[in-house]
Deep mutational scan, measured.
Amino acid sequence: MSIQHFRVALIPFFAAFCLPVFAHPETLVKVKDAEDQLGARVGYIELDLNSGKILESFRPEERFPMMSTFKVLLCGAVLSRVDAGQEQLGRRIHYSQNDLVEYSPVTEKHLTDGMTVRELCSAAITMSDNTAANLLLTTIGGPKELTAFLHNMGDHVTRLDRWEPELNEAIPNDERDTTMPAAMATTLRKLLTGELLTLASRQQLIDWMEADKVAGPLLRSALPAGWFIADKSGAGERGSRGIIAALGPDGKPSRIVVIYTTGSQATMDERNRQIAEIGASLIKHW
Protein backbone atom coordinates (compact mmCIF):
# COMPACT_ATOMS: atom_id res chain seq x y z
CA MET A 1 0.00 0.00 0.00
CA SER A 2 1.42 3.40 -0.98
CA ILE A 3 1.79 6.23 1.51
CA GLN A 4 -1.10 8.09 -0.14
CA HIS A 5 -3.34 5.02 -0.02
CA PHE A 6 -2.36 4.56 3.63
CA ARG A 7 -3.32 8.17 4.31
CA VAL A 8 -6.82 7.86 2.87
CA ALA A 9 -7.42 4.46 4.46
CA LEU A 10 -6.67 5.94 7.87
CA ILE A 11 -8.77 9.10 7.55
CA PRO A 12 -11.50 7.66 9.83
CA PHE A 13 -8.84 6.13 12.15
CA PHE A 14 -7.00 9.39 12.73
CA ALA A 15 -10.19 11.40 13.06
CA ALA A 16 -11.50 9.03 15.71
CA PHE A 17 -8.53 9.84 17.95
CA CYS A 18 -8.57 13.60 17.44
CA LEU A 19 -9.65 15.91 20.21
CA PRO A 20 -13.33 16.90 20.08
CA VAL A 21 -14.12 19.61 17.57
CA PHE A 22 -16.08 22.66 18.57
CA ALA A 23 -17.99 25.08 16.41
CA HIS A 24 -16.91 28.70 16.33
CA PRO A 25 -19.63 31.25 15.56
CA GLU A 26 -16.98 33.74 14.44
CA THR A 27 -16.90 32.00 11.08
CA LEU A 28 -20.66 32.46 10.67
CA VAL A 29 -20.21 36.15 11.45
CA LYS A 30 -17.82 36.28 8.49
CA VAL A 31 -20.28 34.37 6.28
CA LYS A 32 -22.99 36.90 7.08
CA ASP A 33 -20.54 39.72 6.44
CA ALA A 34 -19.77 38.18 3.04
CA GLU A 35 -23.48 38.31 2.23
CA ASP A 36 -23.49 42.01 3.04
CA GLN A 37 -20.36 42.66 1.03
CA LEU A 38 -21.57 40.71 -2.00
CA GLY A 39 -25.21 41.69 -1.78
CA ALA A 40 -26.08 38.05 -2.36
CA ARG A 41 -27.03 34.84 -0.62
CA VAL A 42 -24.17 32.76 0.78
CA GLY A 43 -24.58 29.14 1.82
CA TYR A 44 -22.06 27.52 4.14
CA ILE A 45 -21.62 24.21 5.90
CA GLU A 46 -18.80 22.57 7.79
CA LEU A 47 -18.91 18.83 8.58
CA ASP A 48 -16.67 16.65 10.68
CA LEU A 49 -15.26 14.16 8.17
CA ASN A 50 -15.29 11.22 10.56
CA SER A 51 -18.69 11.55 12.21
CA GLY A 52 -20.59 13.62 9.67
CA LYS A 53 -21.63 15.99 12.46
CA ILE A 54 -22.53 19.50 11.33
CA LEU A 55 -20.14 21.91 13.03
CA GLU A 56 -21.49 25.13 11.53
CA SER A 57 -23.98 26.02 8.83
CA PHE A 58 -25.73 28.97 7.24
CA ARG A 59 -28.55 28.51 4.72
CA PRO A 60 -27.67 24.78 4.61
CA GLU A 61 -30.99 23.77 3.05
CA GLU A 62 -31.37 26.50 0.48
CA ARG A 63 -30.73 25.72 -3.17
CA PHE A 64 -27.69 27.10 -4.97
CA PRO A 65 -26.34 26.49 -8.48
CA MET A 66 -23.77 23.67 -8.48
CA MET A 67 -21.73 25.05 -11.34
CA SER A 68 -18.54 23.05 -11.88
CA THR A 69 -18.57 21.52 -8.41
CA PHE A 70 -20.76 18.81 -9.96
CA LYS A 71 -17.67 17.47 -11.72
CA VAL A 72 -16.51 15.74 -8.54
CA LEU A 73 -19.86 13.94 -8.30
CA LEU A 74 -19.62 13.05 -11.99
CA CYS A 75 -16.21 11.47 -11.59
CA GLY A 76 -17.49 9.67 -8.51
CA ALA A 77 -20.21 8.17 -10.70
CA VAL A 78 -17.61 7.21 -13.31
CA LEU A 79 -15.46 5.54 -10.66
CA SER A 80 -18.44 3.58 -9.37
CA ARG A 81 -18.87 2.19 -12.88
CA VAL A 82 -15.17 1.32 -12.95
CA ASP A 83 -15.56 -0.52 -9.65
CA ALA A 84 -18.55 -2.41 -11.07
CA GLY A 85 -16.60 -3.48 -14.18
CA GLN A 86 -18.74 -1.29 -16.44
CA GLU A 87 -15.99 1.19 -17.34
CA GLN A 88 -12.21 1.32 -17.62
CA LEU A 89 -10.12 4.33 -16.70
CA GLY A 90 -7.74 3.46 -19.53
CA ARG A 91 -10.46 3.45 -22.21
CA ARG A 92 -9.69 6.06 -24.85
CA ILE A 93 -12.50 8.33 -26.04
CA HIS A 94 -12.24 10.11 -29.38
CA TYR A 95 -14.16 13.28 -30.12
CA SER A 96 -14.33 16.03 -32.73
CA GLN A 97 -14.17 19.80 -32.99
CA ASN A 98 -17.96 19.84 -32.87
CA ASP A 99 -17.84 18.39 -29.34
CA LEU A 100 -15.76 21.25 -27.96
CA VAL A 101 -17.58 23.81 -25.81
CA GLU A 102 -16.53 26.99 -24.07
CA TYR A 103 -13.57 26.61 -21.71
CA SER A 104 -11.91 23.36 -22.69
CA PRO A 105 -8.18 24.04 -22.12
CA VAL A 106 -7.18 20.37 -22.06
CA THR A 107 -9.53 18.62 -24.46
CA GLU A 108 -8.93 21.18 -27.21
CA LYS A 109 -5.33 19.96 -27.38
CA HIS A 110 -6.24 16.31 -27.97
CA LEU A 111 -8.56 16.33 -30.97
CA THR A 112 -6.21 14.01 -32.84
CA ASP A 113 -5.41 11.41 -30.21
CA GLY A 114 -8.43 11.61 -27.89
CA MET A 115 -8.22 11.13 -24.13
CA THR A 116 -8.68 8.28 -21.69
CA VAL A 117 -11.46 8.25 -19.12
CA ARG A 118 -8.82 8.83 -16.45
CA GLU A 119 -7.43 11.82 -18.33
CA LEU A 120 -10.91 13.25 -18.85
CA CYS A 121 -11.69 13.06 -15.13
CA SER A 122 -8.38 14.70 -14.34
CA ALA A 123 -9.10 17.49 -16.83
CA ALA A 124 -12.65 17.96 -15.53
CA ILE A 125 -11.59 18.27 -11.88
CA THR A 126 -8.11 19.80 -11.98
CA MET A 127 -8.73 22.23 -14.85
CA SER A 128 -12.55 22.33 -14.85
CA ASP A 129 -12.54 21.40 -18.55
CA ASN A 130 -16.14 21.59 -19.78
CA THR A 131 -15.82 19.32 -22.80
CA ALA A 132 -14.23 16.67 -20.58
CA ALA A 133 -17.27 16.86 -18.31
CA ASN A 134 -19.70 16.52 -21.23
CA LEU A 135 -17.82 13.52 -22.62
CA LEU A 136 -17.90 11.87 -19.19
CA LEU A 137 -21.60 12.64 -18.83
CA THR A 138 -22.14 10.83 -22.10
CA THR A 139 -20.41 7.72 -20.73
CA ILE A 140 -22.86 7.44 -17.84
CA GLY A 141 -25.98 8.28 -19.86
CA GLY A 142 -26.31 12.03 -19.40
CA PRO A 143 -27.32 14.45 -16.62
CA LYS A 144 -30.40 12.46 -15.58
CA GLU A 145 -28.25 9.41 -14.91
CA LEU A 146 -25.97 11.42 -12.65
CA THR A 147 -29.05 12.55 -10.73
CA ALA A 148 -30.18 8.91 -10.49
CA PHE A 149 -26.73 7.92 -9.17
CA LEU A 150 -27.04 10.58 -6.47
CA HIS A 151 -30.55 9.42 -5.57
CA ASN A 152 -29.23 5.90 -5.14
CA MET A 153 -26.65 7.32 -2.72
CA GLY A 154 -29.47 8.82 -0.67
CA ASP A 155 -29.12 12.36 -2.02
CA HIS A 156 -32.62 13.34 -3.15
CA VAL A 157 -31.75 17.03 -3.35
CA THR A 158 -28.84 17.42 -5.76
CA ARG A 159 -29.80 17.33 -9.42
CA LEU A 160 -28.15 17.82 -12.77
CA ASP A 161 -30.42 18.65 -15.68
CA ARG A 162 -28.26 20.16 -18.40
CA TRP A 163 -24.83 19.99 -19.97
CA GLU A 164 -21.89 22.36 -19.97
CA PRO A 165 -22.00 25.30 -20.25
CA GLU A 166 -25.80 25.81 -19.99
CA LEU A 167 -25.91 24.33 -16.49
CA ASN A 168 -24.18 27.47 -15.17
CA GLU A 169 -27.09 29.76 -16.06
CA ALA A 170 -28.11 30.19 -12.39
CA ILE A 171 -31.60 31.60 -12.96
CA PRO A 172 -33.19 32.64 -9.63
CA ASN A 173 -35.70 30.09 -8.27
CA ASP A 174 -34.75 27.59 -10.99
CA GLU A 175 -34.08 24.22 -9.35
CA ARG A 176 -32.26 22.83 -12.36
CA ASP A 177 -28.60 22.00 -11.78
CA THR A 178 -28.73 22.89 -8.09
CA THR A 179 -27.87 21.45 -4.71
CA MET A 180 -28.02 22.50 -1.07
CA PRO A 181 -24.87 22.93 1.03
CA ALA A 182 -25.97 20.19 3.45
CA ALA A 183 -26.73 17.73 0.66
CA MET A 184 -23.48 18.40 -1.18
CA ALA A 185 -21.39 18.07 1.98
CA THR A 186 -23.02 14.78 2.92
CA THR A 187 -22.64 13.37 -0.58
CA LEU A 188 -19.01 14.43 -0.84
CA ARG A 189 -18.29 12.80 2.52
CA LYS A 190 -19.89 9.55 1.33
CA LEU A 191 -17.78 9.56 -1.83
CA LEU A 192 -14.53 10.18 0.05
CA THR A 193 -15.01 7.99 3.12
CA GLY A 194 -17.96 5.65 2.58
CA GLU A 195 -18.21 2.18 1.11
CA LEU A 196 -19.79 3.32 -2.15
CA LEU A 197 -16.39 3.37 -3.87
CA THR A 198 -13.46 1.04 -3.41
CA LEU A 199 -10.43 2.32 -1.53
CA ALA A 200 -8.55 2.71 -4.82
CA SER A 201 -11.37 4.79 -6.31
CA ARG A 202 -11.72 6.94 -3.19
CA GLN A 203 -7.99 7.58 -3.35
CA GLN A 204 -8.19 8.46 -7.04
CA LEU A 205 -11.02 10.92 -6.47
CA ILE A 206 -9.25 12.72 -3.64
CA ASP A 207 -6.01 12.76 -5.66
CA TRP A 208 -7.76 14.55 -8.51
CA MET A 209 -9.24 17.08 -6.09
CA GLU A 210 -5.91 17.59 -4.35
CA ALA A 211 -4.37 18.39 -7.74
CA ASP A 212 -6.95 21.12 -8.48
CA LYS A 213 -5.19 23.91 -10.39
CA VAL A 214 -7.95 26.52 -10.69
CA ALA A 215 -9.05 27.13 -7.09
CA GLY A 216 -5.96 28.97 -5.87
CA PRO A 217 -7.64 32.31 -5.01
CA LEU A 218 -10.28 30.64 -2.79
CA LEU A 219 -9.68 28.48 0.30
CA ARG A 220 -6.17 27.51 -0.78
CA SER A 221 -5.05 31.11 -0.46
CA ALA A 222 -5.83 31.01 3.28
CA LEU A 223 -4.13 27.70 4.09
CA PRO A 224 -1.08 27.65 6.37
CA ALA A 225 1.88 25.50 5.39
CA GLY A 226 1.37 21.82 6.02
CA TRP A 227 -2.40 21.85 5.67
CA PHE A 228 -4.17 19.42 3.34
CA ILE A 229 -6.85 20.44 0.86
CA ALA A 230 -8.66 18.63 -1.92
CA ASP A 231 -11.23 20.86 -3.58
CA LYS A 232 -13.29 21.80 -6.60
CA SER A 233 -14.52 25.28 -7.42
CA GLY A 234 -17.32 26.49 -9.64
CA ALA A 235 -18.36 29.74 -11.31
CA GLY A 236 -21.59 30.68 -13.01
CA GLU A 237 -23.77 33.50 -14.24
CA ARG A 238 -25.50 36.05 -12.01
CA GLY A 239 -22.56 36.35 -9.66
CA SER A 240 -22.47 32.67 -8.78
CA ARG A 241 -19.40 31.10 -7.20
CA GLY A 242 -18.79 28.00 -5.13
CA ILE A 243 -16.30 25.55 -3.69
CA ILE A 244 -16.43 22.12 -2.09
CA ALA A 245 -13.44 20.87 -0.14
CA ALA A 246 -11.97 18.32 2.25
CA LEU A 247 -9.28 19.95 4.35
CA GLY A 248 -7.38 19.84 7.60
CA PRO A 249 -4.07 20.39 9.37
CA ASP A 250 -1.15 17.96 9.66
CA GLY A 251 -1.39 16.92 6.03
CA LYS A 252 -4.72 15.09 6.26
CA PRO A 253 -8.36 16.09 5.83
CA SER A 254 -10.63 16.22 8.86
CA ARG A 255 -13.54 18.39 7.70
CA ILE A 256 -15.75 18.94 4.69
CA VAL A 257 -16.50 22.56 3.80
CA VAL A 258 -19.02 23.73 1.20
CA ILE A 259 -19.54 27.37 0.24
CA TYR A 260 -21.91 28.68 -2.43
CA THR A 261 -23.02 32.16 -3.39
CA THR A 262 -25.33 33.48 -6.09
CA GLY A 263 -27.03 36.70 -7.11
CA SER A 264 -24.11 39.09 -6.64
CA GLN A 265 -23.12 42.02 -8.81
CA ALA A 266 -19.57 41.79 -7.44
CA THR A 267 -16.58 41.02 -9.62
CA MET A 268 -15.05 37.55 -9.70
CA ASP A 269 -12.07 38.85 -7.73
CA GLU A 270 -14.34 40.16 -4.99
CA ARG A 271 -16.29 36.89 -4.82
CA ASN A 272 -13.01 35.02 -4.55
CA ARG A 273 -11.81 37.37 -1.81
CA GLN A 274 -14.94 36.90 0.28
CA ILE A 275 -14.68 33.11 0.07
CA ALA A 276 -10.99 33.31 0.94
CA GLU A 277 -11.84 35.44 3.99
CA ILE A 278 -14.39 32.86 5.12
CA GLY A 279 -11.63 30.29 4.80
CA ALA A 280 -9.24 32.44 6.81
CA SER A 281 -11.80 32.73 9.61
CA LEU A 282 -12.43 28.99 9.53
CA ILE A 283 -8.72 28.27 9.91
CA LYS A 284 -8.17 30.91 12.59
CA HIS A 285 -10.92 29.40 14.72
CA TRP A 286 -10.26 25.75 13.83
Results as ranks from 00 to 15, higher is better:
Thr27Phe: 02
Gly248Thr: 08
Asp212Thr: 15
Ser128Phe: 06
Lys71Ile: 06
Arg220Tyr: 02
Pro253Gly: 05
Gly90His: 03
Gly234Asp: 01
Glu62Tyr: 00
Lys53Glu: 07
Pro65Ser: 06
Thr112Gly: 09
Val42Phe: 03
Arg118Thr: 01
Pro249Ser: 09
Leu111Arg: 10
Glu237Thr: 09
Thr179Gly: 11
Asp231Asn: 02
Glu35Phe: 04
Trp208His: 15
Leu49Met: 05
Asp99Val: 14
Val101Trp: 15
Asn130Asp: 03
Val29Gln: 02
Ile140Gln: 13
Thr27Tyr: 01
Lys252Trp: 11
Gln204Val: 02
Val72Ser: 03
Ala123Glu: 15
Leu79Gln: 15
Ile275Asp: 13
Leu282Gly: 05
Thr178Lys: 04
Arg255Glu: 07
Gly279Val: 03
Glu108Pro: 00
Glu270Ser: 13
Leu73Ser: 08
Gly90Glu: 03
Val157Met: 13
Glu195Arg: 02
Asp129Pro: 00
Glu62Trp: 00
Lys71Phe: 00
Glu145Tyr: 15
Lys252Pro: 08
Phe58Gly: 00
Lys53Gly: 12
Ala280Asp: 12
His285Met: 05
Asn50Arg: 05
Gln265Pro: 09
Met268Glu: 05
Arg159Ala: 01
Lys32Phe: 09
Glu237Lys: 10
Ser96Leu: 01
Lys53Thr: 14
Ser57Leu: 13
Glu119Cys: 15
Glu210Ala: 13
Arg241Tyr: 09
Tyr95Glu: 04
Leu191Ile: 04
Leu38Phe: 00
Ile256Thr: 07
Asp269Thr: 04
Thr261Val: 11
Asp113Ser: 00
Phe228Glu: 01
Met209Glu: 11
Gly52Met: 10
Phe58Asp: 01
Phe228Lys: 00
Thr179Gln: 02
Leu47Cys: 11
Arg81His: 07
Ala211Leu: 03
Leu120Gly: 03
Asn152Tyr: 13
Thr198Ile: 14
Gln97Trp: 14
Arg238Thr: 07
Thr112Lys: 07
Arg189Ser: 13
Pro253Cys: 03
Gly85Leu: 15
Met115Gln: 13
Leu191Trp: 00
Ala245Trp: 09
Ser240Leu: 06
Glu87Ser: 13
Leu205His: 07
Ile275Trp: 14
Pro249Ala: 10
Asn173Gln: 12
Arg255Ala: 10
Tyr103Asn: 09
Thr139Ala: 02
Pro65Tyr: 13
Leu218Asp: 15
Arg92Glu: 02
Glu61Asn: 05
Cys75His: 00
Arg273Cys: 06
Val82Thr: 00
Ile125His: 00
Val72Asp: 03
Thr107Gln: 00
Leu79Asn: 15
Glu56Ile: 09
Ser254Glu: 03
Glu195Lys: 01
Gly39Ser: 02
Pro253Thr: 05
Ala124Asn: 04
Thr27Cys: 02
Gly114Leu: 04
Ala123Pro: 15
Ile243Val: 05
Gly279Leu: 05
Asn134Asp: 02
Leu150Gln: 08
His156Gln: 05
Asp269Lys: 10
Thr131Gln: 09
Arg202Met: 03
Thr262Cys: 04
Asp36Arg: 04
Met115Glu: 15
Arg255His: 03
Lys109Ala: 12
His110Leu: 02
Ala200Leu: 02
His110Lys: 15
Pro249Met: 13
Val82Trp: 00
Arg41Lys: 15
Glu145Arg: 09
His151Leu: 11
Ile93Met: 12
Ala148Asp: 14
Arg271Gln: 02
Ala235Cys: 05
Asn50Ser: 10
Arg59Met: 01
Gly239Cys: 12
Leu160Val: 06
Glu166Ser: 08
Ala245Asp: 04
Leu73Gly: 07
Pro25Gly: 10
Thr27Ser: 01
Ala185Arg: 05
Pro217Val: 12
Leu28Ala: 13
Leu160Met: 07
Ile275Arg: 12
Gly239Pro: 13
Glu61Trp: 03
Ala132Thr: 05
Glu62Met: 00
Phe228Gly: 02
Asn130Glu: 05
Leu137His: 15
Lys190Asn: 12
Thr158Ile: 02
Thr138Met: 13
Pro165Gln: 10
Glu237Arg: 07
